[in-house]
Design a binder for these strands. Structure first.
Lengths: 337, 337
DNA sequence: AATTGCTGTCGAAGCGCTTCGACAGCCTAT
DNA sequence: ATAGGCTGTCGAAGCGCTTCGACAGCAATT
């Protein structure tokens, strides 16, 4: 293993000079710099991460806590994780992958050991038990998701409430009066995941303003669960002509079932999905949808974190404005019969 | 930040004693041990990762390289990543997430800097350019996936060739004579990803043995692409009664299209999928499928790596035997008309 | 000519841990 | 009684890096 000292010797300078060439924290003459850089290349030198971390008290690692459970939004999680990893690399950071499994202990461990310089938390619940720890440490962090109380925290998220409102507006504008919301699995609501509840709030309050009737039903993914849920909805509100779906794995089953029952999309019923664009485009009917900007959230989170680590940036809540793309699954409400 | 020295002082012993309590590398009397452990708890001590890495030349980190592209198997990747992370934690390791983006450079960087003690590579191509580097270093590694030449490497993978064979056998046993294979996107084959080609090999050679005719068509995911692909297949081989699908995002479109054309599953055509069980169960027809054992692969990979790091274990190729579960999408071939 | 202020480089200290050799104290076998 | 072997603990060295203060050399200012 090549060390700083060996590079220094090879280049005929002192170790500290090599260090300053690497960090740029003091000015170095052009000739010396070049000599050192050449030696680094010749010897194939890579700074030792542990030594660097010990001496500088910086690991150049960002910890990313992803949920262990895979009951929702797997592709979104993955996309965020990848965006975080690539963005972090662009800023010279590596990413440590933590699963939610350890819970608050993971926060303690990472903070205490100096393993990572900062953390990104995903899948934040409204009253998340990791938050007190985060507030009690000076380690920078960013949440992807919005807890109930955001004081002293930095959060990045899609504006779910506005997302819900946007879906309602779109359907209201098309003349629909009775709409059903196919939600995430019941467990997601039970554990008070912010995004699901906020979406619902947004939907409901805009529905109240526009005079729409809303029926909300959580739904496990899959065909069978969707069949049961749909039957119940149509039983309770036969006049339903609009659907908002916030559950990737219910989208295709819903479309299949509607088709099977002879309800044409978008002639008889309209469907608006809240899902990544890719899903909306690949569905059997090109879906009118509000995109979940996974990449953007990941990128934002890292950028905020890096700003904090550089001493810039402060606590703040960034809500990304939702965008609704009209495709082939929504249209005017059928004339009342 | 609490240090070893502070714990030592608090417990009234020397620093080295605390270290030995932590590592267990020398015997310590019960009373001393307890006193030290109590001090650790009292002070909330966590060993500093950088210092430990520097002194012991071990970071207790495993690097996981996941593919950047998301054109295939996202849930599988995610499941593997999570399995890797949880299993690694059980053995006292953390996981560093690297995206394929950096390519071979990432291997050099991690190896050179001592950031990680070992690596797991996913999405291995048949002639992967990272392999020479891996062979040229003494850093342990495990591949998830099988390159063309495995000498000097440890690999874990589903036995894709046997998987292909198994699908053919199942359909052959049901009397099907003409089968079509809906494959991954063309790009997957173009970059010579092992699993796709091996599956095809397994399919074809068993088809030869059992006298089946096989038509293979790569297919982008989604409804539109599937529609085109299916039309071509039925045009070329109208007598096709069996389908093998190795592309998650083509499964549901295929089922929808068959339904739409009045071909009943499994009465008229049989469908066998190669996908995670969850997908098979959630589809609109419960699918006969060969499961992709994502968790098992991740777990295996970590276990091998840990064995190597402990000085046990050696290079070896582990192929997981495929298992076909019969569900509702396959049945006897219709009588020839 | 003397002072001041840069710029570029160096030496040394120290980050918090692991680990090696030393050794005190005790028990067992001669 | 003595040598030898354990067991449990300690001190010190050192891992490879960053960073602080020092300072030599030179240019610009008085």
């Amino acid at each position: 293993m090549v060390t700083l000292a060996e590079v220094a010797q090879h280049a005929g300078v002192s170790a500290s000079t090599v260090s300053y060439v690497l960090s740029g924290k003091r000015s170095i003459s052009a000739t010396t710099r070049q000599r050192v850089e050449q030696s680094i290349r010749d010897l194939g030198y890579h700074p030792n991460a542990g030594a660097r971390a010990l001496a500088s008290n910086r690991s150049n690692i960002i910890a990313l806590m992803i949920p262990l459970r895979t009951d929702m939004y797997v592709p979104v999680m993955m996309e965020i994780a990848i965006a975080v990893a690539t963005t972090a690399r662009m800023h010279g950071y590596d990413v440590l992958l933590l699963t939610g499994e350890e819970g608050p202990d993971a926060v303690r461990r990472v903070t205490g050991s100096g393993l990572a310089d900062a953390m990104i938390l995903m899948d934040v619940e409204l009253e998340d038990e990791r938050l007190p720890l985060l507030r009690g440490t000076d380690q920078p962090s960013v949440l992807i998701g919005l807890p109930a109380d955001t004081t002293g925290l930095t959060c990045v998220d899609l504006d779910w409430s506005a997302t819900g409102a946007l879906c309602v507006e779109h359907l209201a504008g098309l003349g629909h009066r009775d709409i059903a919301v196919i939600g995430e699995a019941p467990a997601v609501y039970e554990r008070h995941t912010g995004f699901a509840e906020r979406t619902l709030d947004g939907l409901r309050s805009r529905a109240r303003e526009t005079g729409l009737r809303v029926l909300h039903r959580p739904c496990e993914g899959g065909y069978d669960a969707m069949a049961v849920t749909l039957a119940r909805i149509l039983d309770e509100r036969p006049g339903t002509t609009g659907f908002v779906v916030q559950n990737e794995s219910a989208v295709e089953p819903l479309l299949a079932l509607l088709r099977q029952q002879g309800r044409a999309v978008p002639e008889d019923v309209s469907v608006v999905a809240i899902c990544p664009d890719q899903v909306a485009v690949q569905a059997s009917v090109r879906l009118t949808s509000v995109a979940i900007p996974a990449q953007e959230m990941g990128r934002h989170a890292v950028q905020h974190l890096v700003a904090k680590l550089d001493g810039r940036g402060s606590d703040e809540v960034v809500l990304i404005a939702p965008e609704l793309t009209v495709r082939a699954s929504s249209g005017p409400a059928p004339a009342a019969s």
